[in-house]
Design a binder for these strands. Sequence first.
RNA 1: GGUGCCAUAGCUCAGUAGGUAGAGCAACGGACUGAAAAUCCGUGUGUCCCCGGUUCGAUUCCUGGUGGCACCA
Length: 311
Amino acid sequence: MPDENRLKYDLLVVTGPTASGKTALAAAVALELGAEIISADSRQVYRGMDLGTGKDYSDYIVDGHKIPCHLIDIADPGYKYNVFEYQRDFLKVTAGLKARGVFPVVCGGSGLYVDSVVSGYRMFEVPPDYSLRAELETKSLDELTGMLAGFKKLHNVTDTDTKKRAIRAIEIELFQRREGERQTAFPGMKALITGVLPDRETRRRRISERLRQRLETGMIDEVRTLMEGGLDPEILIYYGLEYKHITLYLTGKVSYEKMVSDLEIAIHQFAKRQMTWFRGMERKGTVIHWIDASLPAEQKKQKILDLLNGF
RNA sequence: GGUGCCAUAGCUCAGUAGGUAGAGCAACGGACUGAAAAUCCGUGUGUCCCCGGUUCGAUUCCUGGUGGCACCA
């Protein structure tokens, strides 16, 4: 790829709602650029969670070339990965790519994860303080909100509308007062952010079609295997969507028919929330270049290459 | 064929002693820096089946249709 592209941007982002065809597009672009992909998907980080997370290894093979992909399959199922860890791991990967002179293409639909790296969230490791949590747990949300209001707020948490969030915010605040700021030095990176955008009807249709197809090709078995491997149903429910609803079915809580319809609705609602997040990012000043998902693959790829070249 | 019951939001249904209506789910909008596939907040989108009648006024009462369900033949 021409060197001037690398000078203009430090990385490319390809995001969009679920089932929009992000991965194949990102892989096609990556091949063109000799780039590697960094996943931004909060569930594809887990090993053995493939069909349910929409992880499709064949998407990374373009014209017989396998595009390397980072930050998938990096945690055991049962683990609770989070944004802080994502940011930390992301920095490790980008440093490695930079050392090798490889351009990074970030691809995924976890909007918070994408934003955490393109906006450079200030985060630092704050270990859980269980005795503090137990103490705060006895207070009401109003009391917790009151405590937070009296704080100077050294960090940027703004949404404390549930007890769990308010408690974590207080925990971070107190830790920082005690230990001083230990913020991750997050380098400023110039990102070209693109998003694949299907119209609402297409988005819904593709989600429904893909769900049916995955149910027919072993998605139930995948969840069953995880359960038989000793994974607590509670954690599967915590993972949400496919894992949650299929677990409820496998443990006899709902019928197969109800599971399928509940799950379909839940995925539609999730896609809608993803779009709300992206609009929120735009409202705060992030520029997202939307690409019509209905265009032929070649045109979508070309559009991104043109944007990278500044056209 | 007869009798009875039902017809109200996308769906399931409530309601109006006659003053044009509201719940749940869905849908839609939003928030969200250690759960983010999570979590939380907000919004009713309507020929009240159709034609007439009574009435100042009918989604509501009455006649007749139409459709559905149940029972009897």
